[in-house]
Design a protein around this nucleic acid. Structure first.
Lengths: 234, 234, 234, 234
DNA sequence: TATGAATGAGTTTTCATTCAT
DNA sequence: AATGAATGAAAACTCATTCAT
């Protein structure tokens, strides 16, 4: 956690530091990110940095577990989906995720980085915790879906992880493909957001939910025959 | 591409170099990986390395585009799925992917690294090419599925990317969860492979295919009501 | 240009660095000169060097375009030749150049290095600029000599370049011959300066000016016959 | 000196080696020149090189003291100036030097490099010997000029060195200025030679000789008043 | 004799962190 | 508390020369 001094910083100075840190960690992995760069671009002396944070990891940890989630919550606001069905709520969740990605690609990228492997044990611990929290939340959601009867009979663990991947990196890929851009272009430019209209986002969310709900199989065969017959196998 | 010299190397020496390179690039990103480390662990002088490869990128490129795919093909052997249905072939593909991951986690990790973002343009180009090739192949497969009637009406681009994520990082996560291990433990240890039996792999593959085919929705509602009605929305 | 840090350095430390850099660049070409050597001999860590200069070229550029000229000006002081004739001023200029060479051979050598060819484009640009500036100044001087009637009818470009060579590398050779030493001995030792008395310097300067003014031809034929007659040629 | 094996080499192979060595040493100083580059471009194994020459210095020495002078003599052929006056012979010498420079800039550059300072004692010895030989020759020529009455009363040592600089680096500068090119462009391209016509070369040679013979002073004052009067000084 | 390969000392440069003021 | 500077370990890469076949 940042030191006391960090929170007593003049907001302008603090914001510069945080903003530049976000830029750096969005573009580079923890190891590759350079404190020197962050300090230089934020125009704060490198020495001062160590008054605010213990070290590079301290900054990264705080960004990953506090600041980025806070900004994400601030952007997303209230869920506003009370009363909706399970699938509707899922669609809304996806849509909001896409909006966040398009409007705040750097924050989204830092969040997503938790899924990247890294050789540093400390960072791995961090990433693990974040991923686990996300999975826990999604698992709870799916459990609720099961209770509500929206979901069929599923292997909960498998479903949790597959759905997490679909609405995580999967949708990021889809959005990038829609934008016709690579991640690094999106991180660098500010005006790509307009390229994905709210209408289009809704359509993509609906199609994704349809995929999660009913899969890709043709309707007639969808549940008629078991995927691979036990007898045929035996 | 490696220089001629490399291919004329005594096999023991060459293998040491390649093996250590694989270890290093499996654990670290391109930028983080250290030639010095590779050379030291392979017990070849740093100067000698440059007899074999142009530079660090040359080694990485060769691993990524030649050696790792070659080893993967060697491991997977023939497809052996001729005559099977689309879904059966998909299940087989998934199963084989899981086997490769468990038996050769380092190779699998290097392959998968192509999906990780990186700030270096040259490396990005490499990764991009690999990802595109994978997507092209999968897209063709899905198109065939459509022709064969196995797949319903789908947005091909969306489906391609979502399926790719499911059978790529999605299944990796699932397997790691099954092993109760993190990627780095798997990369480091040789005997985790037994923890995921062929039977269990088959079961996971079947369930994954079921997910891709029919989704997670309860049978009765599966295709009865449209995911989200246009009217309900308007 | 050096960074701010450099100018705030404790003088002893800064001087050590500059002095060793001058020694190194006086003895070796830009490419051959070694930052490691400079740092080692100045007893500053290599890492510290980069607090003071952007890189090797930054140091060299500053030496060549700022520090060496500054020291040269400091040594030469005021011209003090106002009112003198063109040829007298030229003699004074030459004399002062010889004094500088003898008293500060390293600075003189670094200046002169601008005339050496080099394969590095950036360094070539630097050298070119310095040579051009020197030629411009000399050309202006000669133009004034023409206006004052001291100079006869000359090809200005040719004259500028020939005179530049005479009073540049030419005089350096002459002085070294007088000292009975090679450049590197002069660069290495501090007490050769006394070997060339002011009286001798004045004599050499006078003779050089006589050469520039009247050439080497015997008086009687000096301008009587054209250098090579058109007819004689045809 | 090269080893026996070198002279027994198939001419094509030997020529490739020599030609590439000339290219390399023309562009770079002894230290900067790279044997690896020479060997690679000449397509001879680096190991073989050491069958032909003791080391880098051996090659350089042979080029500088044997091969380049031999090629220079071959280009210049017979002097053909018997019977001409001292000044005519000098003009011819200069003209031939310019022709050599324009037609064989690489050979000329290697010759001229002997005047460049270097930190390596062995190379310094080489350069010194070459320069001294050139000066000896020129001194003898001037002595003959004195005997023939063409030259006035001169300080022989001073005159030798000043004339050497004028017709050496001085004329090179002049020619480069005429070509509107830098040395490195001339070294790299083959067709700049046409830019300096024989007629223009002759004119430059004549003007240079006029400079050496009569200096730059205006005719009326040229020898009337001593360069700087003893009285004026006192 | 030919030669491909091996090698270690060398190069410039970056970086996170500590220290002194 | 602020901060400018110091620093050493690390990085990728090049080179002339030697060695073994």
């Amino acid at each position: 956690m940042p030191k006391e001094t960090f929170f007593r910083l003049p907001p302008a100075r603090r914001d510069r530091l945080v903003d530049e840190a976000i830029v750096e960690f969005a573009e580079r992995s923890y190891v590759e990110a350079s404190l020197s760069q962050i300090a230089k671009r934020a125009r704060i002396p490198k020495g001062s940095f160590y008054q605010y944070f213990e070290d590079k990891l301290d900054l990264y940890r705080w960004l990953l577990t506090d600041e980025v989630p806070r900004r994400k919550r601030a952007f997303l606001g209230e869920d506003g989906a009370t009363g909706a069905s399970f699938w509707e709520r899922l669609a809304l969740h996806i849509e909001r995720g896409m909006a966040f990605l398009v409007e705040h690609p750097q924050l989204a990228r830092i969040s997503a980085a938790a899924a990247d492997p890294t050789a540093l044990p400390e960072v791995r611990g961090l990433h693990r915790a974040i991923c686990d929290a996300g999975l826990d939340e999604l698992r709870a959601t799916l459990e609720e879906g099961i209770r509500s009867g929206a979901l069929g009979k599923v292997n909960l663990e498998l479903a949790t992880r597959l759905v997490a991947t679909v609405i995580g990196p999967g949708l990021t890929d889809v959005v990038l493909a829609e934008l016709g851009a690579e991640l690094h272009e999106v991180l660098a430019s500010d005006d790509l957001r307009a390229r994905l209209s709210a209408r289009r986002r809704r359509a993509l969310a609906d199609q994704t939910v349809a995929f999660l709900r009913s899969g890709l199989g043709a309707p007639e065969d969808s549940l008629a025959t078991p995927p691979r017959g036990g007898k045929a196998r035996a």
